[in-house]
Nucleic acid binder design. Structure first.
Lengths: 217, 217
DNA sequence: TAAACAATGTTATTCTTTTAACAATAAATA
DNA sequence: TATTTATTGTTAAAAGAATAACATTGTTTA
């Protein structure tokens, strides 16, 4: 399989969730422009993404929702599922596990880690919490290739090192500190403060355009 | 001011936080390649970003950290700060307010909204929580142009409509549902499930490359 | 059935972003 | 002081992503 553009991968993930909703509402077929409207993008982009994953329909009644979902699954999911750990089970960690709760998904959050003795050995948001000291052991025992990093900023670097050392293959970093990993480990840094500052920047630009008030004095 | 590339805006936000740390450690000057190493990017990209914001140094001792921070502030921040509301103060909402707690920033989270009677009129993570019914009133009274949307998926569409109607200028949407706003409202959709699925996809790819095991049977 | 329409599939173009190439110059060194 | 080195600033090229243009083809309708 030739590799798909990163942005297409992202959109496929979102498409799938929207399509699952459609299916739940009894919708069997969907037009490219309907998918587009649901996501604030153009129908061309939708069609192009769908072309890239090799789906095509001869009908003019839109795409078969079920078939599309399945095909996206073939691309995104690992056949046997993929285990995930949440490292740092504070508010953010719990928010993420909550997202997955009850969802039937090929991604399973199978362990949480924390340093707080109050949390260790308890089940939090449906996930057993282990001591950070047992990181390597549990990751190996449970065969966990992916970790979500939601520890306080000061611990980010140390913990990500430990994760790499424990053999983790992918890290989704939600701390506000960029972390560094060897090139054979997949890394996605996402920074919530940055997104907020970005929105604020564009809002400032717009306000500045419409009324110079805030700059006048 | 000519408008800067979106990616540059994002990086500036991250640079600033890293630079603040450097300053806290007593570092007065920093080389482009040092900034680059901290962020897993190239020095050229750093220099280009810095060129774009119009900073330049005649010294060969690196950039003046203090000056850079200030200049980034001139670009990103509104002179008088910008008020922000968190709409839906569950785990995710609390995680975000916690980020900002104690941070001296030009972005202030000044209100939370929720429907849970247990939360309304209480102070949560340092922020007063109001009833969702008072959205418009409070947004106007407190002059809040930016909202962070962290409500359960089913409420996302309704609440974002209400926000737009209340005169909000920017929405940062963390629900797993894409929302739609008029073109004069700044919108950033960020989907945590998608980022996790993306990491999982690339991990799958890598594992597939190294050992075909998972596809063999 | 023929014409018009509406939808998809694909190539070409444009735009954005990153990377490369290299000129300029302060600082260090022989 | 002349030479080398290290660093910045800037233009040029390449890569990646979105958009536009358009060909194709079921479906509907006169």
């Amino acid at each position: 399989m030739k590799s798909l553009p990163e942005k297409t991968i992202e959109r496929l993930s979102v498409y799938r969730r929207t399509l699952l909703n459609c299916l739940a509402e009894g919708k069997e077929y969907i037009y490219s422009h309907e998918i587009a409207n649901l996501h604030n993008i153009t129908a061309v982009q939708v069609r192009r993404d769908i072309m890239l994953i090799g789906y095509s329909t001869t009908l003019k009644k839109g795409y078969n929702v079920r078939a599309l979902i399945e095909l996206i699954g073939d691309i995104l999911d690992s056949p046997r599922g993929l285990n995930v750990a949440v490292v740092g089970i504070g508010n953010l960690g719990r928010a993420i596990t909550a997202y997955f709760r009850g969802k039937r998904s090929r991604l399973q959050i199978v362990a949480a880690f924390d340093t707080d003795p109050e949390k260790i050995n308890r089940v939090i948001s449906g996930v057993k919490c282990y001591s950070m000291n047992d990181l390597q052991q549990i990751i190996n025992e449970k065969q966990i290739p992916v970790a979500i990093l939601t520890v306080p900023p000061d611990y980010a670097a140390k913990v990500s090192e430990a994760l790499v050392y424990s053999g983790i293959k992918g890290i989704l970093n939600y701390t506000s500190v960029p972390v560094n990993v060897p090139s054979d480990v997949v890394l996605e840094n996402y920074d919530m403060i940055t997104s907020l500052e970005k929105v604020a920047y564009y809002v400032k630009q717009k306000l500045g355009d419409n009324s110079k008030v805030s700059y006048e004095e």
